[in-house]
Amino acid sequence: MKIKLVASGIALIVGAGYGAAAMAQAKPDVLVKQRQAAMTLQGKYFGPLAGMASGKVPYNAEVIARNAAYLDTLNKMPWDGFNNNTKDEKSRALPAVFTDTAKFKESADRVQSTISQLVKVSKGGDEATVKAAINDVNKACGACHDDFRAKQ
């Protein structure tokens, strides 16, 4: 029994190791593609919310709560794609992503915390509060794009 436990423990550790190794081995161009996919999907689920906050799209609390939860998960995905080995890949990521990593992380964290806040208020919050939370997410995303993404 004990041996089994130890063995499965070892298997787990080895497995985790494999996972990490697999991540580190991802090619730079693949990482870029993946992080862009995560960003693209955030656009898909954030766009309608931005439209509701500005009054262009009819307000729908259910859609907001659903999309906020999606965004909360999606927003955790792109960051490990900004690995240092991607710095020479063709993308809109500015060099500052890899040189000013502290500020980049701070900007990304800010996005995450505004999304968490949106998730919280989207569960039954009044329309004005929810719209303000959407606008805060918008500003946090935009502030990061301002400093770390090339214009198109």
Binding site: T40, Q42, G43, K44, Y45, F46, G47, P48, A50, G51, S54, G55, K56, N138, K139, C141, G142, A143, H145, D146, R149, K151
Partner: peptide
């Protein structure tokens, strides 16, 4: 017009804050 009036892009992208 959607972009300049509400900051909406067709793909849900968020413009840089300077323009927002």
């Amino acid at each position: 017009a959607d972009f300049l009036s509400a900051g909406l892009t067709p793909d849900g992208d968020v413009p840089a804050e300077a323009m927002s």
